[in-house]
Amino acid sequence: MVFRQRTNLWNNFWIYLILFTLVLFFILPMIWLVIAPFSSKASLAVKITLPSLNNFRELFKNKVAMLAFKNSFIISFSSTIIVTITSMLAAYALSRTNFKWRSTLLYALLLFSTVVTGIAAMVPLFVLNLRLGLIDSYLSVIFVFIGGFLPVSIFIIKDFFDAIPKDYEEAAIVAGSTPSQGFFRIILPLSQQGMVVIALYIFMNTWGDFLIPFILLRSVNKYPVSVAIYTFFTQEGLPLLGLLSAYSLLYSLPVIVLYIIINRKFGFGFHGGLKG
């Protein structure tokens, strides 16, 4: 028994040592993001100076940076709302009717959404938007986001709808509702959680995306934050580090807050192998 306890202690020591190393690996690169924005003389180094909010003041004065925030919001919000609504409609239809080519359609959606990534389609997407005259407009980015995120959202929401027995709507219909009253009074309230999850999922993903706006947008005043930060860094570089670190922190904040909300309310887990 003594022997056993000792091995346990020894094992525990190793476990905590490995955990500690892993935590170091994940936390060290983050430190800069927490320190630099509040330092009065920001550099690439992690240096603790007197805390100051100067960088944020600078940032709020910077028109391009603030405009980019607005752009990011416009793009992410519109994509999120349109994807949520259209995928709810489609998922409801797919969940409640049983037509011949339904499973083929679902399979095709799953296949295309896995195969056609932004990377694989960046060239045709650019050409398509060029032909449609959408290059350098919010719409180009929004449309591409919608097309890209719809299949996944449809799958997740369909899961939620499938979990609600048809009996509820039928009971509502027999009790005197029209089918749409049944949807709005019964199904919508019951699938609220799914809607919130899907909306947050899309918002977080579109918020951070870089490639699509980077390819499709030209004018600085339309850039979302991801592209704006990139151009600041590559064009002005070191002199702007203070501002850039503050900008990065502010840019990351919404997703972190949303993550905390999801985690608190629903638990952060898996829905069909996806984050959400």
Binding site: L89, A93, S113
Partner: peptide
């Protein structure tokens, strides 16, 4: 109900892949 979603997917996901 499926039309809007399928239209977006067709134009901005499936078509580009084939057009590539």
């Amino acid at each position: 109900f499926m039309l809007p979603a399928l239209a977006f997917v067709a134009v901005f996901l499936i078509f580009p892949a084939i057009w590539a």
